[in-house]
Write a protein that binds this DNA or RNA. Structure first.
Lengths: 104, 104
DNA sequence: ACTCTACATCGACAACTGTCGATGCAGCGA
DNA sequence: TCGCTGCATCGACAGTTGTCGATGTAGAGT
């Protein structure tokens, strides 16, 4: 794995390297229809709303989630291939890329 | 995913969240017989020896690599199921564990 | 015993990160 | 227009992280 690709992939793993963000992803994935607004996520995490918003920004910039405004609420959902692409990288022994890794 | 498990998994992902450590794992995996001593890793990474040693320690404490002293050298190798276990967690949508995640 | 090499640890430092309260902004309803 | 709610951003702060040079430690060879 070359340095450039390592930097991009590391950015995504770093986004996964926080318990709050992992639970955030887990909560979104477990939600019905695969999306959740921020107000659904703040309480079960036990973190303040600004902190949750910050974590969601990190996940967004890593290309792991996407948010869509619908009225007053912003609904977040997982980006389909992102997690499985990372999983494929792990299973490949961190060698070479197969396709795009949806960096950001 | 509960908070305890999130903390453990996050620790492993955090270990993967650095370009140097990713390249380190990649270099070890690519080495013949799957092991490499530190002196083989320092130069291709472009980092100082203490820094490489520090990164290896992080990877060790995350349960991703193991080092074995053989004479003057210390040979590092990937821990067999560690990366694939993480990959399985990603593919499961970060929901529930299947087996042990080999935390540390 | 001495020295050399390979690796780990220490001490220090700048940079980054997670967290929160306060504030700003956008959309909705009265 | 006014106020309310949901979310993002700001400013600040403590804690963590990546990095290096200097130093310590362990094994091998002379």
């Amino acid at each position: 794995m070359d340095a450039d690709r390592a930097t991009g992939v590391a950015l995504q793993f770093k986004a996964l390297g926080d318990p709050g963000r992992l639970r955030l992803l887990s909560l979104i994935a477990a939600h019905e229809s695969g999306q959740a607004c921020v107000c659904d996520l703040t309480e079960p995490l036990g973190l303040s709303q600004p902190t949750v918003s910050h974590h969601l920004k990190v996940l967004r910039e890593a290309g792991l989630v996407a948010g869509e405004r619908r009225g007053t609420w912003v609904y977040y959902r997982l980006i389909p291939g992102a997690l499985t692409a990372l999983a494929a990288t792990l299973n490949a022994g961190l060698s070479s890329p197969h396709g795009s890794t949806v960096p950001a």
